[in-house]
Amino acid sequence: MAHTETAEMIDPVARRHATAADYVQLMKPRIMMLVVFTAVAGLVAAQSVTGVSMNPVMAAIATLAVALGSGAAGAINMWYDADIDAIMTRTSTRPIPSGAVPRDEALAMGLIMSGVSVLMMWLASNALAALLLAGSIAYYGWFYTMLLKRRTPQNIVIGGGAGAFPPVIGWAAVSGSTPLDAWILFAIIFMWTPPHFWALSLLAHKEYAKANVPMLPVAHGAKATRNQILAYSIVLAPLGLAPVITGLAGMLYGITALVLGAVFLVLAFNVWRSQAGDAGAPGSDLKKAKGLFAFSILYLFILFAMIIIERGFGAYMPVTIA
């Protein structure tokens, strides 16, 4: 279905006036909140580790720049995906397919916000952080949305880099560099994304099939997806402890990561043993996929909250590894 057909699909009678909430929804606020939170974790950790203190006003502007950049990428994504959003039930009420916001208006909003966010980041911090922010917007808005999503079942794996950049951007905003610790935080989010999203796709695979989007359950089936969820979870659990090994995180984080990683593995194993995503799968198996999806959000939030608590509130206690 051509993108230009989206506007013609909307019944003029069904069109409605856009509200402020519609423009907020264009920015994908739920994703934005997680993006901002992980960026703040990188910003706080960088100040603690390097001893460089960033002016609070500049730090707030840099954080706002990350939020605007995330919103810009979301608006560009909704502009491009308006045709498939109109097909899938769970996305058909979004601002563009519902007729509230014209597609060209969403694109203009995304492009303007992209430019403003990058400029703000440059002025508040440095060129490297601004470049990384620009790259993350392009990664999600162009590379993932336009090149990967409709072409390969590995779209989430490769495209996961877009959501993994925020802590690196936050670190760069403080120090003007991106050391190993920053990239470890990147790696945690990168490896977290596939099992998180594939748990959801097991529940929504019929929607993706209807829209002809080759998500893994559509292209290779539910069993292959469950196998991949378990495989990535097995890598993610120990990776979550990597900040302790490098000294970025301390005892509080280490204990938390150990417990959360174990729970994540148990939930992933339960999904692997289930029939979630298969035709006629019992409701209890679908609940297992829902449970993993819900817990995965909590997992990432708590891990990065521990980074902020340890490095920002003086709770850091180094772990000595013999």
Rank of each mutant, 00 (worst) to 15 (best):
N55K: 00
V35P: 01
M58I: 14
T6F: 11
F313W: 08
Y144L: 00
N227W: 13
K28G: 04
F37C: 02
A127Y: 12
S296V: 03
L185N: 07
A294I: 13
R150F: 06
P243D: 01
L34H: 04
R226P: 10
G314V: 08
W142V: 13
L200G: 01
A279G: 13
P179C: 08
T91E: 02
T4V: 14
T225P: 05
N55S: 03
S175Y: 05
G170N: 03
T145L: 02
R94Q: 11
T63Y: 02
S53A: 15
R103F: 12
R90V: 02
I31M: 10
L107S: 10
T38K: 01
S117Y: 03
V13T: 15
V271I: 01
G247S: 07
L111N: 07
P214H: 07
V40T: 07
Q154T: 13
H17A: 15
L258W: 13
A237I: 07
T320V: 15
V66R: 03
M32P: 11
A7D: 14
I297W: 14
A41E: 03
P167K: 04
N126P: 07
G170W: 06
L180Q: 11
I255T: 08
I189K: 03
V157L: 08
Q47K: 05
F190R: 10
D83W: 13
V271F: 00
F143G: 10
A182Q: 07
I189P: 04
A67C: 02
G221H: 06
A281D: 05
L133H: 09
A257E: 00
T145E: 00
L147C: 14
L34A: 06
P166Q: 10
I309L: 10
M120E: 04
G291C: 08
N270C: 14
H17I: 15
S117C: 02
V101F: 00
P179K: 01
A20C: 13
T178P: 01
T246W: 06
L200A: 01
S53H: 15
A59S: 00
T256M: 09
T63L: 03
R16Y: 08
R273M: 09
G247L: 01
G277V: 00
H196G: 09
A294T: 14
A237D: 08
L252V: 11
A82W: 04
I302R: 10
F190S: 09
K210W: 14
A106I: 04
P195I: 07
A249Y: 00
G161A: 03
P97Q: 04
M1N: 15
A108V: 13
I302M: 05
K149A: 01
F264T: 07
K149D: 05
P56Y: 01
P97H: 06
L241E: 04
L123I: 11
G71H: 04
A322F: 15
Q25P: 14
D22Q: 03
I10C: 09
I87E: 12
V244E: 05
V24D: 10
M306N: 09
K287P: 10
K28M: 04
V24K: 10
I302K: 12
G283N: 12
A281G: 01
V36F: 02
V35D: 06
M113H: 11
V157R: 06
V66S: 03
Y253N: 02
M33S: 15
L64N: 11
V44S: 00
G247I: 06
S136E: 02
T246M: 08
W122C: 12
A62I: 00
F264Y: 04
M78R: 12
I184H: 03
K28N: 02
L111A: 12
Q25W: 14
